[in-house]
Design a protein around this nucleic acid. Structure first.
Lengths: 210, 210
DNA sequence: CGGCATCCTCTTTGATACTG
DNA sequence: CAGTATCAAAGAGGATGCCG
């Protein structure tokens, strides 16, 4: 990106991260930690392969990304955020929070990856009953399942299936999100193809913030 | 901007505000309030006139900007942020804070406008002596003077000259900023052409945060 | 003068094919 | 797997013209 040529902190920040795709690459690296090139491509549907290569090089030059040779069994390059790059995560939170208002119906053709839910779930929800025993909810709604845990006041997630979940929620991403954010009630969500197995009351532990 | 086509809050936000210049236009409108087209141009050195017109139209469609006909004596259009647009201000703060680390020497050819200092001064400084009487400092460093007031724990600014300032600081923007952020001491700043008239100790009231 | 619209050039992006 | 090469399309930048 050509520089804005303005002696202003915001403009200087945009000189480095204002390019198309750059902040989404930061999102991927923030969510996944050290990642292979192909994993990044999978998490960035729609990106052209030369774009990803260009951006990673520029971000390396900007001191946001570091490229390491992976240890022997893997033998491939791994990309990860530098410390300076990690400091961009609060920026993602601020922009993402602003963007949640835009997460209504899923537009036709919109891609979805389950791991994108991590930051929203952990940032924009609280555990409604901090003193109760933890609950575990498995969401099945994208390319892979994700486990959501409400424990001690906070919400944590990790990819994959749960061992003995209190509830399993299956459905389209926009319906699952609509239910969690309480824009849809359970009846309406079910009408839209959602299924809840196990204890539906466990869902009440996920308290939308803001 | 073409959509990323990703059902993700961050991607949806960037669909609306990820275009070149868009966030800087939000900065201007946030700093100035309702503004005329030409005032926006002045605060956005380097923007092409068609760019500004295009972006304002897109931002209007996106619900971020409202265009009003000004009341009779002015008889020109005024642009301002909608409520939704104002909600972007925390995003500017997050990105700007990240960008402050990039505010070292002013690169040759970098433009500067004094009013850009408002958010940094108010967000990134505190009043070091909340219980002391207020102090007023006038900065003369860009296209116009700006008054910085430390009062009751907080820092406030407004454009223009002060009535009876405790101190007046004159110099190049990067030197003034370096002094306030304490990357330069007074001796070094003076060597770089800075002048302080009045009570230099008043400057101690401006306490850099973070 | 304020507020754009047009025209043209140059750069960036995107799609696809190909390679070590 | 991890990119590079190529080419077409879209977007940005700059100059200038127009109109109330």
């Amino acid at each position: 990106m050509r520089s804005y040529g303005q002696y202003c902190a915001l403009a200087k920040a945009l000189d480095l991260v204002g390019d198309r795709w750059t902040l989404l690459i930061v999102r991927e690296l923030g969510l996944r930690g050290p990642s292979r090139y192909t994993d990044l491509q999978h998490g960035l549907p729609g990106i052209a392969t030369n774009m990803l290569a260009d951006r990673l090089r520029e971000m390396e030059d900007a001191g946001i990304v570091r490229r390491d040779a992976a240890p022997p069994p893997v033998a491939t390059a791994l990309f990860q955020l530098t410390e300076r790059g990690q400091e961009l995560v609060p920026v993602l939170f601020a922009l993402g929070r602003w963007g949640t208002a835009l997460m209504g119906e899923r537009a036709e053709g919109d891609e979805f990856r389950t791991h994108w839910l991590k930051y929203p779930l952990e940032q924009l929800f609280a555990d409604a009953a901090p003193s109760e025993p933890p609950v575990t909810i498995e969401l099945r709604t994208g390319d892979q399942p994700i486990v959501v845990e409400a424990t001690g006041g906070a919400v944590r997630t990790h990819p994959g299936g749960a061992d003995k979940p209190d509830a399993v929620v299956t459905g389209e991403p926009d319906v699952v999100i609509g239910l969690l954010k309480r824009r849809l009630d359970l009846r309406e969500a079910k009408r839209r193809g959602l299924r809840v197995d196990g204890d539906a009351k466990a869902l009440r532990r996920l308290q939308p913030l803001g």
